[in-house]
Design a protein around this nucleic acid. Structure first.
Length: 112
DNA sequence: AGTATGACATATA
DNA sequence: ATATATGCCATAC
């Protein structure tokens, strides 16, 4: 297993429950700036056994990366909604569920 | 070795 | 909102 892949898995696993991140953010966090595509690749390599919150990874604009109606798409929507993430028309408001917002919330000390 | 294809991103138009 | 244009790079042919 390549070390980059491990870091990617680690970065994905670090996404808190009920929140989401973009492929680019994960890549950057894994020390691979500009290599967002690789993140998608690696997520595809995941073996079904391991527990990985792959569904918390979206495109930069908040849209689900899978084709609408596809199996992966439906599962992702389902799983996200199951933990309180608002998914409308295949899209999630990153402004509300993204990672940077957490820091803001910490600093401003205000609830959702 | 060369081309094509992605669970992508950013910049323009 | 749609549409190109680049950059990116692991895999598959």
């Amino acid at each position: 297993m390549k070390p980059e892949y491990r870091r990617i898995f680690q970065a994905v696993a670090a996404i808190p429950r009920g929140r989401v991140a973009s492929y680019g953010q994960i890549a950057a966090r894994a020390g691979l700036p500009g290599r967002a595509r690789m993140v998608g690749k690696v997520l595809g390599y995941r073996s079904d056994g391991q527990e990985l919150p792959w569904f918390r990874v979206l495109r930069a604009d908040g849209r689900i990366a899978f084709a609408p109606g596809s199996r992966g798409y439906r599962e992702q929507v389902e799983r996200l909604r199951a933990e309180g993430v608002d998914v409308r028309n295949g899209r999630v408001p990153m402004q509300a569920f993204g990672l940077d917002h957490d820091l803001d919330r910490e600093l401003w000390g205000m609830p959702d």
